[in-house]
Nucleic acid binder design. Structure first.
Lengths: 349, 349
DNA sequence: CCCTTTCGTCGAAGCGCTTCGACAGCTGTA
DNA sequence: TACAGCTGTCGAAGCGCTTCGACGAAAGGG
């Protein structure tokens, strides 16, 4: 491996000069800079990451913690991960991939070892075990002294208590409200919500509950009836859930679907039962754009802006690492796109 | 941050002793070991990753290069990535997430900087630009001297020339043959293949072409007719493709689907046209288990063993890093599971 | 009983980089 | 002319760890 010293020798300057050329932290004459750059190119020099991290106590690595489970939103997760990696590179960072598996220990390990300069957490639960370790500022009596990692971090998702934390997320509350509002305006009075898998609610994943909140308060405001049912993905689960819903509320004409793997099954089932979309029933989905346009009926939907979330998360984290930015909660405003799956409620029989 | 030296002092031993306790590279008396371990726990010590990497020239990091595009097999990619991360941790490695974006430069950068000890590449093309940098052994005249990264690497996927490379993949050739064979045995004489998006073939992704090979030779052997059509995912594209297929070969009774996002649209279209599955037409898919069982008809399928591929890749890489293992091509044998979507061909009208 | 091994521990030398303080040579100002 | 203030460069100290050789002590062999 080529070292800094070799580059320096080749260029006829000292090692520190080469270092300053690389970092730009001191002014260098144009002449010297060019000679050094030429040597770097010629020798194919790459700075050694470990040495750099040791000397500067900055690793230029961001840790990204993705959920281990794949029971929800896999494409969204993937898209976020890729956006994070891409954006991070653009800012000179690499991304370390952690799975939720290790839980809080991963936070301790990464923070303690200086492996990463900061972290981004996905799939945050309302009372997440990892949060006490991340909370900046003062959490009086909250953490045992010496245990605080105080790792710069950004969450994708919203916990119950966001004090001392930076979070980025779609405003799922507004999303829920928006969906109901859309259907209510079209005259639907009985709306069913196909939610995420029961397990998602059980572990108190913030976005699911917040969406529900929004749906409920939207319904209250618009004076429509709302029936919420969790649903595993897949055809069979959807069939069962739909049957129950129509049994309980035969007059249901509006559906809000949050579970992306229930979308296509729902459409197939409705078709099979002779209920036309959007003539007889309307469907609004909360899902990535791609799912909405690729479905068998182009779906009216609120997009989940995965890329944007990943990008914002990195940008806020980098700002924090540069000391440019404090704690903050960024909620992305939802946008509802009307497509072919929603229309006026049928006139009452 | 707590350092080795502080632990040593706290335990009343020298720094090197602590280091040997940690690495186990020299024998340590039980007594000393326990005292040191106790101090480590008490002080909450985590070795500094940079220092460790610098001193040992091992980073204990594996780089994983995932495709930037998301035009195919997203859940498979995700599953592989998670399996890689999990398996790597079990072997004491962390995973660095790289996107294909940087191309060969990423290989140079990571290898040159010692950021990672080895790498795993996904989405390998037949003539992949990154390969010359990875090829071990002698590639006479192949690479400019000094350019060879000679980075220990494992590919997930098969390039045209595997010499000097370690690869892990499903045996897609056998997979194709297996699908045709299954349908042929059931009496189907006209088989259509719904392939990946055209772009996938254009960039010569190995698995797509190898599957096709297998399908064709299987068809030749079984004496059945085969019609292959690439297909973007989604309902509209599938509708168009299906219409063309049935126009050209109205007698088609067997379908092999490789594009996972064409599966559900195909089933919906067939249903809509009054063709019953499996009574009138049979469908065999190449897809993850989960997709097969969640579809509206439980699909006869060859599973894509994503987890296994990720795990094997890591295990081979780790073996290589330990000097325990040479170059090798591991092809996982395909397994066809019969479910509800395939049955005997209808008797000829 | 002495000499050789083996065991357990230590000190010191780096690994390749960043960064601080020093300083030589200039420019510009008084 | 002299001195303050830049600018551009260098040397050296250290970041926290691994690892090599050394060495005293205990154990085994002749």
């Amino acid at each position: 491996m080529v070292t800094l010293a070799e580059v320096a020798q080749h260029a006829g300057v000292s090692a520190s000069t080469v270092s300053y050329v690389l970092s730009g932290k001191r002014s260098i004459s144009t002449n010297t800079r060019q000679r050094v750059e030429e040597s770097i190119r010629e020798l194919g020099y790459h700075p050694n990451a470990g040495a750099r991290a040791l000397a500067s106590s900055r690793s230029n690595i961001i840790a990204l913690m993705v959920p281990l489970r794949t029971d929800m939103y896999v494409p969204v997760m993937m898209e976020i991960a890729i956006a994070v990696a891409t954006t991070a590179r653009a800012h000179g960072y690499d991304v370390l991939l952690l799975t939720g598996e290790e839980g809080p220990d991963a936070v301790r390990r990464v923070a303690g070892s200086g492996l990463a300069d900061g972290m981004i957490l996905m799939d945050v639960e309302l009372e997440d075990e990892r949060l006490p370790l991340l909370r900046g500022g003062d959490t009086p009596g909250g953490t045992r002294p010496g245990v605080r990692a105080d790792q710069p971090a950004v969450l994708i998702g919203l916990p119950a208590d966001t004090s001392g934390l930076t979070c980025v997320d779609l405003d799922f509350r507004a999303t829920g409200a928006l969906c109901v509002e859309h259907l209510a305006k079209l005259g639907h009075r009985d709306i069913a919500v196909i939610g995420e898998a029961p397990a998602v609610y059980e572990r108190h994943t913030g976005f699911a509950e917040r969406t529900l909140d929004g749906l409920r308060s939207g319904a209250r405001e618009a004076g429509v009836r709302l029936l919420h049912r969790p649903c595993e993905g897949g055809y069979d689960a959807m069939a069962l859930t739909l049957a129950r819903i129509l049994d309980e509320r035969p007059g249901t004409t509006g559906f809000v679907v949050q579970n992306e793997s229930a979308v296509e099954p729902l459409l197939a089932l409705l078709r099979q039962q002779g209920r036309a979309v959007p003539e007889d029933v309307s469907v609004v989905a909360v899902c990535p754009e791609q799912v909405a346009v690729q479905a068998s009926v182009r779906l009216t939907s609120v997009a989940i802006p995965a890329q944007e979330m990943g990008r914002y998360a990195v940008e806020h984290l980098v700002a924090k690492l540069d000391g440019r930015d404090g704690d903050e909660v960024v909620l992305i405003a939802p946008e509802l796109t009307v497509r072919a799956s929603s229309g006026p409620a049928p006139s009452r029989a």
